[in-house]
Amino acid sequence: MKTIVLLMSIGLLGWWQVVVPLQVIVAAVAFARGRWRLAVFSLAALAMAVAAVAAARAVVDWHPDGFGRVGVVLPSGHSALVVVAVTTVAALAWPRWSRRRIAAAAALILAVAAVMASSGHTVGDVLVGLALGGVSVLAAGGAARFRRPRRTAPA
């Protein structure tokens, strides 16, 4: 329960002043424990999310009327960073993923997104932010060469 409250607080804050140090600390701890893939993932996901949100904001600024019609005014960096932070902390806490743990992380991300959508961002902003964060997490997983564990056939 304490982990969920901590992640929810980080997600609601979602500011780079909170998430950047968290990602660096997770990377340092992971590297110190010999989990270099998690360290690479932590830093790569952060960098990719920041770059993706900056690029998306530049595109929206370039054509604000077109994006305003679909409800995207300013892609939510908070949403992108919460996806990165929750996924990184979940990977640190749960080295072996299960469907239940993935569902818990997804529910937490969606709960934070709902709060953000009701408190200042448009739904389009939050959805674009979540998508950018998700793409960043997937790309960072590829860069860190995370892969699903292979199941062995029963003997």
Rank of each mutant, 00 (worst) to 15 (best):
M1G: 03
K2M: 12
T3H: 04
I4E: 11
I4L: 13
V5C: 02
L6G: 02
L7F: 06
M8T: 03
M8Y: 02
I10W: 06
I10H: 10
I10C: 15
G11C: 13
G11V: 13
W15V: 11
W16M: 15
W16L: 12
V19C: 11
V20M: 10
P21D: 08
P21G: 08
L22D: 07
Q23P: 09
V24E: 01
V26D: 08
A27W: 00
V29Y: 05
F31W: 09
F31C: 14
R33L: 14
W36K: 06
R37M: 04
R37Y: 03
A39S: 15
A39N: 13
V40T: 09
S42M: 07
L43R: 08
L43Q: 11
A45L: 03
A45W: 05
A45S: 15
M48F: 06
M48H: 05
A51N: 04
A51G: 08
A52H: 00
V53D: 03
A54W: 05
A54G: 06
A54D: 12
R57F: 02
A58W: 04
A58R: 09
A58M: 08
D61A: 13
P64A: 07
P64D: 14
D65N: 08
G66I: 04
G68C: 13
V70K: 05
V70H: 09
L74Y: 11
L74F: 06
G77C: 01
A80I: 01
V83Y: 03
V84I: 08
V84Q: 05
A85E: 01
V86R: 00
T87K: 08
A90K: 03
A90W: 08
A90R: 04
L92Y: 14
W94G: 05
P95F: 00
W97Q: 07
S98F: 02
R99A: 10
R100M: 07
R100A: 13
I102K: 13
A103R: 07
A103P: 05
A103V: 07
A104F: 06
A104L: 11
A107Y: 00
A107I: 10
L108T: 05
I109V: 14
A111S: 14
A111V: 12
V112K: 09
A113S: 11
A113Q: 07
A114V: 15
M116W: 05
S118H: 06
S119E: 11
S119A: 14
H121F: 13
T122L: 10
T122Q: 00
V123M: 12
V123P: 01
G124V: 10
D125P: 11
D125M: 10
V126D: 00
V126Q: 00
L127W: 04
V128M: 00
G129V: 05
G129E: 07
L130N: 12
A131W: 02
A131Q: 01
A131R: 02
G133M: 04
G134Q: 02
G134I: 15
V135E: 00
S136D: 01
V137N: 09
V137E: 01
L138G: 02
A139K: 02
G142N: 03
R145Q: 14
R148K: 12
P149V: 03
P149K: 11
P149I: 02
R150P: 08
A153P: 12
A155R: 14
